[in-house]
């Protein structure tokens, strides 16, 4: 989905709030959230792709104002409710207040029927796909051309696995793009490497 989470290349953001070697956690509840979602994954209640997608499904107004670990908490709660482990009513009764959840999911999809094996040096284009469900193609590479640098081992296909759709594992390719190709005349010069699933790619003749 073209959601709020897909931030790469968006403009208008201010300075990075950087302090050297900042801590990962600030409050005890953040550590608990991190542990609880990892625990649910370990129990097999949901997988990492479902977890990521439930964060992406948060309404933009909530997504932008929630802290990182509140987003994590919202995904955890949404999936526990969707999987029938808990109900929203129970959560709100226990929490004594509203418990905002992510919006419902759109359907997923399986692998592309026209997958190709690529070699380092091959020129590839990112397919012009608009996907209503989970997808791990950042919007800024859609339709763009790059060069394959290497292949990673086969991974579960996230567009399917976030939606309990049958699919085959497939490789991802490290594809190198020039920033000037991604944002012509509107980016600092750099090479941008993106891990791209095979289904998202087509060969450039």
């Amino acid at each position: 989905m073209d959601g709020m989470h897909d931030l790469g290349g968006r403009q208008g953001f201010g300075a990075i709030r950087y302090t050297p070697n900042a801590r990962a956690f600030h409050e005890a509840w953040e550590v608990r959230v991190n542990s609880l979602y990892a625990f649910a994954v370990r129990l097999g209640i949901f997988n990492m792709d479902e977890y990521r997608h439930a964060i992406e499904r948060m309404e933009p107004r909530h997504y932008l104002t929630a802290s990182y670990y509140e987003r994590s908490l919202t995904s955890l709660a949404t999936l526990l409710v969707e999987k029938g482990i808990l109900t929203r009513e129970e959560l709100e009764r226990r929490a004594q207040g509203l418990f905002p959840l992510a919006a419902p999911s759109a359907p997923g999809r399986t692998n592309s029927p026209a997958r190709e094996r690529f070699q380092p040096g091959d020129r590839v284009r990112v397919r012009d796909d608009y996907v209503p469900g989970h997808v791990r193609m950042p919007g800024y590479i859609r339709g763009k051309t790059g060069v394959v640098v290497s292949e990673s081992p086969d991974y579960p296909f996230p567009d399917a696995r976030a939606h309990a759709v049958e699919s085959q594992d497939e490789p991802t390719y490290d594809v190198r793009f020039r920033s000037d190709e991604l944002w012509p005349h509107s980016a600092d010069a750099a090479l941008v490497h993106v891990g791209v699933f095979q289904s998202y790619l087509e060969r450039v003749a």
């Binding site: 670990y69 482990i85 808990l86 226990r94 509203l98």
Partner: peptide, 22 residues
């Protein structure tokens, strides 16, 4: 109704899972 403070939301999940024997 107001959104519950985030810490109480975490408590709610943790307690609910504990009560289910998880």
């Amino acid at each position: 109704k107001r959104t519950a403070p985030v810490e109480r939301r975490v408590d709610a999940i943790q307690q609910a899972l504990d009560e289910r024997g998880l």
